[in-house]
């Protein structure tokens, strides 16, 4: 009877139902994470293992991207500044842009693609091949072992990777500035550190923690709820990336408003 009634619902109504059911599921998933993260047993070894994996997985791509971003952004900014004879401001401009926005955003987007998809696919394939059930019947809490550890690892590792990206991008920028304006390393970095404030660094770290949490929880949620065999695993990986990126942009926008409000106080 319930099924028949469900069949008669218009498509839009079904989609709205599905959206809100999904939202409730996701909320319960996040709530469960916060419940389980503080309860023993603590899977320290697995958290460290995951941190290492995430770091190693992302490092080559992040190094290359960070370096290129530094060079390209410096190169693109030079003509505008040189119109006002202000190319000496390049280090300060680049530092502010990289630390405040580009470092966290570029790192988070790359990690969403690389780490988020890998978490979604890994947990998804464990789900469809009954490995998660196997864990559960051997009296191990799979949520704690698979989800809590990965979310903690992304939350801790993304800020570290962001700092690394900032550094690599600044090195790229320095190489460009040094070759064109003949600015020394010490002068470049003195200008960089003069330009950035504690609030810039603090907001960047907090933002990165939120980005890391988002990447981890979305990847795990999508993997944990994947179904329909290998097709479902592919979908889980894909939607983990898309949803993470979408949320990261929204979070970036919110963070910008909050930091600007604090700055205006």
């Amino acid at each position: 009877m319930a099924g028949e009634a469900d069949d008669r619902k218009p498509l839009i109504s079904k989609k709205i139902d599905k959206f809100f059911t999904g939202l409730a599921d996701a909320w319960n998933f996040v709530r469960r994470f916060f419940q389980e993260v503080f309860l023993p047993p603590y899977e320290f070894k697995e958290v460290i293992h995951q941190c290492y994996r995430i770091g190693v997985e992302s490092l080559p791509l992040i190094s290359l991207t960070g370096f290129i971003v530094g060079i390209v952004f410096t190169n693109q900014s030079r003509p505008s500044l040189s119109e006002f004879g202000a190319t000496s401001w390049l280090p300060a401009l680049i530092a502010i842009a990289i630390v405040r926005a580009m470092g966290p955003l570029v790192t988070a987007l790359i990690a969403a693609g690389k780490v988020g998809s890998s978490i979604g696919a890994e947990i998804g394939s464990m789900k469809v091949t009954e490995q998660i059930d196997a864990m559960e019947v051997s009296a191990t809490n799979p949520f704690k072992f698979l989800v809590v550890t990965r979310v903690l690892a992304t939350t801790f590792m993304i800020p570290i990777l962001v700092m690394y990206t900032d550094f690599v991008a600044l090195v790229g920028s320095f190489i460009n500035v040094n070759s064109k304006e003949l600015v020394s390393l010490s002068t470049f970095f003195v200008q960089v550190f003069d330009a950035i404030t504690f609030l810039d660094v603090f907001s960047s770290v907090i933002k990165s923690l939120v980005f890391g949490f988002t990447i981890g929880i979305v990847g795990c949620y999508k993997g944990y709820h994947s179904s329909k065999g290998t097709e479902g695993v592919g979908r889980a990986a894909n939607s983990a990336v898309v949803i993470s990126m979408f949320l990261i942009f929204i979070e970036e926008l919110l963070a910008l408003q909050i930091v600007n409000a604090i700055r205006g106080m």
């Binding site: 890994e122 394939s125 464990m126 091949t129 009954e130 490995q131 059930d133 196997a134 864990m135 559960e136 019947v137 051997s138 009296a139 191990t140």
Partner: peptide, 27 residues
């Protein structure tokens, strides 16, 4: 109770990322 029940899954459900030794060590 689960510790007193062994469950052999249809597709074996061995953990892909672990060796045979680690699979057996895990529980």
């Amino acid at each position: 109770l689960r510790l007193k029940i062994g469950f052999s899954f249809q597709n074996s459900a061995l953990y892909d990322s672990m060796t045979v030794r680690e699979n057996m060590e895990f529980p």
